[in-house]
């Protein structure tokens, strides 16, 4: 899970979180008692559908202001370490 969530953990931390998550999932088992076959899932509490707005240009957030808050940026873009290949 830590790998999927991209969180680096030590062996001790893995043990700690395994216990924590285990306690919660133990309680989750009580849902097994319910017969939910005929109950559809509810993802969103309020039935809004097909939300449209007029196709008019608004004022966008300023690019330089956004980039000024990034850890690294250059040439008007976010900068990250190499994604592919050997880092050099």
């Amino acid at each position: 899970m830590a790998r999927l969530a991209r969180i680096e953990l030590t062996a001790d931390e893995i043990e700690h979180y395994t216990g924590h998550l285990g306690r919660v999932l133990e309680h989750a088992r009580e849902l097994d008692d319910l017969d939910l076959a005929d109950v559809p899932p509810l993802a969103h509490p309020y039935p809004l559908r097909n939300v449209f707005r007029d196709d008019v240009a608004g004022s966008p957030v300023d690019r330089d202001e956004v980039l000024s808050q990034a850890p690294a940026a250059s040439d008007g873009q976010f900068e990250v370490p190499p994604v592919l290949g050997d880092p050099s």
Binding site: M1, L4, A5, I7, L25, A28, L31, L42
Partner: peptide, 28 residues
């Protein structure tokens, strides 16, 4: 961190229906 990993688990292939899907039905 705990909640992110719990959520990652609840949504992961093989557990989705048993956890997230079931919880959504309880929501209904």
């Amino acid at each position: 961190k705990a909640r992110i990993m719990l959520g990652t688990f609840a949504l992961s292939a093989g557990y989705y229906d048993a956890y997230y899907g079931k919880a959504q039905r309880v929501r209904m």
